[in-house]
Amino acid sequence: MLTGIHHVAIICADYPRSKDFYQRILGLTVLAETYRQARDSWKLDLALPDGSQLELFSFPGAPARPSYPEAQGLRHLAFASDDLDADVHHLRLHGVECEPIRVDELTGRRFTFFADPDNLPLELYEVLPEAAGEN
């Protein structure tokens, strides 16, 4: 039986830049960092507060994303936020542009989109503590 999402994997173009973004700016905790010499590849395991993980990979010569944001495949990665205004302010202080905050017409929840260093679409979706079990 499925019990949740364990991890999401991202291949980045500039490993040090992406590592800094996800660790320092987004505040994810490093669980492990491994260099795989046979692949000339770094793998960084990062933890989110809910126990889910993000894996960051570097692969030499990986192709760029073909289009934004409507390429086939994963559309975007959404992070839960318990204070959307504070999180948007934090991102902007670090030079990360965020779209205007919108309201989800189906749930009434507020959200915004921004991009990681490789222009991958990321979302902040406001989930208030009393609604943490709702999605």
Results as ranks from 00 to 15, higher is better:
6 H>M: 01
6 H>T: 07
7 H>G: 03
10 I>L: 15
11 I>M: 12
12 C>D: 05
13 A>W: 00
13 A>K: 15
19 K>P: 01
20 D>R: 14
20 D>F: 07
22 Y>G: 00
25 I>S: 04
25 I>K: 08
27 G>W: 06
27 G>M: 07
30 V>L: 09
30 V>R: 08
34 T>I: 09
34 T>M: 01
34 T>S: 06
37 Q>S: 15
42 W>S: 03
42 W>Y: 11
47 A>F: 00
47 A>R: 08
48 L>I: 04
50 D>I: 01
50 D>M: 02
51 G>C: 00
53 Q>H: 13
53 Q>F: 04
54 L>R: 07
55 E>D: 10
57 F>S: 05
57 F>C: 05
58 S>E: 06
60 P>D: 05
61 G>Y: 03
63 P>L: 02
65 R>I: 12
66 P>A: 07
68 Y>V: 13
69 P>S: 07
70 E>A: 08
71 A>N: 13
73 G>R: 03
73 G>K: 06
74 L>D: 02
74 L>N: 04
75 R>W: 10
75 R>A: 09
78 A>V: 08
78 A>R: 13
80 A>T: 11
84 L>V: 13
85 D>G: 03
86 A>H: 10
87 D>M: 08
91 L>F: 09
94 H>S: 15
94 H>K: 14
95 G>D: 07
96 V>G: 06
97 E>K: 11
99 E>N: 13
100 P>G: 10
106 L>E: 15
107 T>Q: 14
109 R>F: 09
110 R>I: 06
110 R>N: 06
116 D>T: 03
116 D>W: 04
116 D>I: 04
119 N>G: 14
126 E>P: 05
127 V>E: 01
128 L>V: 10
128 L>G: 02
131 A>W: 12
